[in-house]
């Protein structure tokens, strides 16, 4: 599903340049649930942003579902993001004046799906994350866990190949975190490929594979026995 080879990224700051990713190689197969770990500043978010086509690598190749991702203009990047990827952020990034339902429907709007179908499909995803009753509430009327569920429904709405989640439980207490991870596991059980950036060991243990980053290189990459989140709830 994802193949990256020799990925390099540095940030220029004035005269200095900060080499953040120093030759990353790794592959993700369809249906995997991978957590990316590492200390703060190790380049986890940078890697995820490149995978999410929100940022571009300086060097190396990236292939997503057989499509080489390179020389993207903004328009093409937007189309690929819409078609291939679903994002889940630590701070949810919901649009606060839109209802939960309208937030979920947004990727479909940019896919050109008509309104009634948008609403129907979005409602189905809200149901899936257990928030059908909250469809017409604004984000500020929802708890953190509920917001993240809406964000997950939104990430799923466009039926993407890969879900990318950056610290998705970072703003949640542990009980809510596990509930969210349970949802993530269920979605993964259905076959969806998911990458999760986290620095919490217990969250990482709920994935099927842990990739450890340090100073811009992968120092460890191993499959693990998944801990089911439901047991901790």
């Amino acid at each position: 599903m994802i193949e990256i080879k020799n990925l390099h990224k540095s940030y220029k700051m004035g005269k200095n340049s900060l080499h953040v990713l120093k030759g990353i190689n790794f592959n993700v197969e369809e249906g995997e649930l991978v957590s990316i770990m590492g200390s703060s500043g190790s380049g986890k978010s940078t890697l995820l942003n490149i995978l999410g086509m929100l940022d571009e690598a300086d060097e190396g190749s990236y292939t997503l579902d057989g499509v080489p991702i390179k020389n993207l203009n903004e328009k093409l990047a937007a189309q690929y993001r819409n078609k291939f990827l679903g994002f889940i952020f630590q701070s949810f990034n919901l649009i606060n004046y839109k209802s939960a339902l309208d937030n979920v429907a947004l990727p479909l709007y940019y896919q050109g799906v008509n309104r009634s179908e948008r609403m129907e499909r979005s409602m189905a995803y809200l149901e899936k994350v257990g928030l059908a009753a909250w469809a017409h509430h604004k984000p500020n009327e929802l708890s953190g866990g509920q917001k993240q569920r809406v964000a997950i429904a939104r990430a799923l709405a466009s039926d993407p190949k890969v879900l990318l989640a950056d610290e998705l439980t970072g703003a949640l207490d542990s009980k809510t975190s596990y509930e969210i991870m349970d949802l993530i596991q269920q979605i993964n059980d259905e076959g969806r490929t998911i990458l999760v950036v986290t620095h919490e060991e217990d969250i990482a243990q709920m994935s099927k594979r842990i990739v450890n980053l340090k100073d811009g290189v992968i120092i460890d990459d191993r499959k693990i026995t998944q801990v089911r989140a439901i047991q901790n709830v």
């Binding site: 328009k75 937007a78 819409n82 994002f87 649009i95 947004l106 940019y110 896919q111 939104r154 466009s158």
Partner: peptide, 10 residues
């Protein structure tokens, strides 16, 4: 930014 991440073209 959110709209763009979700696929809004410039």
């Amino acid at each position: 930014g959110i709209r763009k991440a979700l696929g809004a073209e410039p």
